[in-house]
Design a protein around this nucleic acid. Sequence first.
DNA 1: CAACTGACCGACCGGTCAGTCAATTAGTGG
DNA 2: CCACTAATTGACTGACCGGTCGGTCAGTTG
Lengths: 188, 188
Amino acid sequence: MDKKQQIMDVAIELFAKRGYENTPISAICKHSNVSKGLAFHHFENKEGLLREVFLRMAQIIEEVGDNVDLVNEELSTKERFVSHLEKIFLSMTCAEHKLYYQFDFQVLCQPALRTLLKDLFDERYQLMLESFQSILNDIPSADSLVDSHMLIAELDGIALNYLFAEDEYPLTKIKQRFIKKHLLLLGL
Amino acid sequence: MDKKQQIMDVAIELFAKRGYENTPISAICKHSNVSKGLAFHHFENKEGLLREVFLRMAQIIEEVGDNVDLVNEELSTKERFVSHLEKIFLSMTCAEHKLYYQFDFQVLCQPALRTLLKDLFDERYQLMLESFQSILNDIPSADSLVDSHMLIAELDGIALNYLFAEDEYPLTKIKQRFIKKHLLLLGL
DNA sequence: CAACTGACCGACCGGTCAGTCAATTAGTGG
DNA sequence: CCACTAATTGACTGACCGGTCGGTCAGTTG
């Protein structure tokens, strides 16, 4: 029964559901059956908890991607591109991660929090950019840098709209049109 | 010197810069040289202020669009489509509105605030959807509903990345590739 | 002028929240 | 069984914040 882990698990959930500012430490403690003193024993302060929680969350999400990456040997550029996109769409639909992504956007859009975690965001964006560029570099008709920025932004937007739509969202159909559209643009 | 207006102007700015939860009424009062009593005289409570501020903001932003709409008579479908997209990209780059858009995303991604303003968001989304559909309906190769959802989402994502990127973002280049891509998809 | 209105003020209150700390308990090696 | 450390508790503090309230005053209206 690792209390620290317990605290973080509850924190992720409550931060995502209620928002960081609206989640008092006391609520996290209550839900994880832990005293407030212990929470501050394990984490320097609320911001420290946020940082650790955010790191853990990013780590959990990335595990999905890692499993798929193994297949990506010996494929054509087109196949690699499509599989990369499919992978991203897949990770969106993973129900248990929905909360995590919602929290991610929440932090992204809140100036105070964003600043706090800027380094982590920048690092992730850079990784994302490079992974797209490494594929698009093989395609002459692509503007590898601009198109990578564009792809990231568009996928962000689709995720955002999907995640926060309470009624069902035509994600699968959008995915198909989205991929088709990009293959056309790239002349594949 | 309309104090109520003054309060709202300051509120928009501070909400956008610091976030709603991190902006005490007292700070708004200080910046607009007004007593706390007056703020609560004009607005029922903090949520009431948020709602009015949000409405006003949406109204300011929409004014940009209205000016452009007049030109849209007698154009081909393709031209109407392109001009609609150009209009949206244009409104993004309007520097004075950057704060407003940032605040918009902030509210969108914060469950508590989002719920509070859900009706306003829904209404705006519906309008956006219809305006895209009305164009795409004229294009046989389009899946007017799905493509409209997709366009909105993608534009959201581009705006999001553009607005929160502190270094300069290749928005113009993205716009060009974006439009080109969609014309290809639609066979225009 | 007297009665009335409503914008406006700022002290104040109830409550909440992050963070502290002295005290208790559990665990561990000798 | 003891001594020492790490984990854990929850009462407590002080700052802050949303919201209230009694009251002032400039400007009507009759």
